[in-house]
Simulated assay, not measured.
Amino acid sequence: MAPEPTPFQHRSQPDWVAMEKWISDTVVHPDPALDQAISTAQAAGMPPIEVAPNSGKFLQLLVSIRGARRVLEIGTLAGFSTLFMARALPRDGQLVSIEYKAEHAAVARKNLDDAGVGERVDIRVGAALDVLPTLEGEEPFDLVFIDADKQNNSNYLEWAVRLGRPGTVIVLDNTVWEGAPMEPERDPVNAPGIRDSLQLLGSDPRFDATVIQTVGSKGWDGFALAVIR
């Protein structure tokens, strides 16, 4: 029986982390509701893979700039990024967030309700590729945030097109992954899916896209930003 692959290592630098914290404290100003999302995730034994506060605020601003009323999130975890985006929605807006694990969804639900944005968020539990078809026929989404299993990135992009419309903004997280997309053999679990999704964004005429590199507490990473044509 083949051994389990070694988990891919993300490496950070003290200066990156210090600057990220300074930016968060100076510009983003995390509050008790966001702190609760982090602490409850830790208490529940979730992996520390939520977006950094400055990235969460970026998502919030994108929702606001786009004037989004309908947002789709693939990957809820404890609701940290969900909370940022829900705060930017109008009173009649809705965020549909898909979470694979029911226990994670329960933690996120409490965090969102405690933060006062629960009525704007519909958490649907299950494998994303099972849940996404149930959203067909609903009002199109204005913004889609994808932060889930990397093997299905390209499938999630296809669903973003099906559930969106021209002008829909797509954010695909974790697309630099310590440079592994250039050498997928460095992380055979995640890197091939990331590489394939970036090639799709760059070659498919339905998308207009770029990739932004970032450094910080999550190491050397980044995100793709795309608009459906």
Rank of each mutant, 00 (worst) to 15 (best):
E158T: 10
P166Y: 11
F223H: 07
A108L: 06
G116L: 03
A128K: 06
A148S: 14
D114A: 11
W159M: 07
P166G: 15
K150P: 03
Q199F: 08
D122P: 11
G126E: 00
E178F: 07
T214W: 07
V131A: 02
R195E: 11
T210R: 10
N155M: 13
E183F: 06
V169N: 08
P166E: 07
K150G: 11
A108I: 05
K110Q: 12
G118P: 01
L129D: 13
P133Y: 12
K150Q: 10
G179Y: 13
N174Y: 06
V211R: 07
P184K: 06
I212V: 13
L129Q: 14
P166L: 15
A127V: 05
P184Y: 15
L157V: 08
F207N: 10
V189T: 12
G193F: 06
A128M: 11
G219M: 01
L201N: 02
L132E: 02
D187C: 01
N152G: 12
K218S: 11
P140G: 11
S203R: 14
V189Y: 08
F223S: 04
G167S: 11
T214H: 09
V176M: 00
P188N: 09
G216H: 13
V176F: 13
T168G: 12
L163R: 14
E183Y: 05
D147W: 13
T175V: 12
V117M: 02
R165T: 08
R206N: 04
K218A: 08
L198S: 06
F145P: 05
D173N: 10
N153S: 13
L112I: 08
